[in-house]
Design a protein around this nucleic acid. Sequence first.
DNA 1: CGACCGATCGTCT
DNA 2: GACGATCGGTCGA
Length: 206
Amino acid sequence: MNLLKAEYFLQTDTLMLARQLLGMQLFTCIDGIKTAGRIVETEAYLGETDRASHAYGGRRTRRTEAMYLPGGHAYVYLCYGIHHLFNIVTNKIDIPHAILIRAIEPTEGINHMLDRRQKSKADFSLTRGPGSLSRALGINTGFSGQKLQDTELFIMDNDSQLLWDDIASGPRIGVDYAGEDAKLPYRFFIKNNPYVSIAKTKILDN
DNA sequence: CGACCGATCGTCT
DNA sequence: GACGATCGGTCGA
């Protein structure tokens, strides 16, 4: 396992990055508490031209400003007043692409995750869904705009590559408001992984 | 199972 | 003042 430099996310092909993130590990080390999980589900948001993106049409607000930073920064926002959703900004400065991390498979610090989630037993719901995994890892909106680095929030890539056949894609979840763009297959996940959200659609392909 | 619903609050108009 | 890139609980079949 190697530490992934934040600059890795300066790459411009956000869809490819969203696919490549699968199998990598997301770490947080907060107040000395280290927790991590293997990324098993992601969604790409392609910025100005993507109706599902908060940056659609080039919208710049206090909240979305983090997405206009260079790739390798975090974009975290509050959803439904309760959930802190974690994204990795990609592409060059002023191009507001981002990848939402939708599910991880816990690998380290499971007891701390249970504490944060106020659960007594580990089950798949511990880190299934973007709000759940953020809570388990201790990620909140305070991280928005921060660069990924090796002290608090970072990514390690894996020695073994995932096979193409192990990955599936389909429409993104919860973006019905996005019209035609809601159908785009910008959600990627590891096939048959129990931590992946149960999607209502059946459209699956590579 | 599936459908429905309430929680809860920052953000934008 | 309305609305979410959600979650977890309940209710009925």
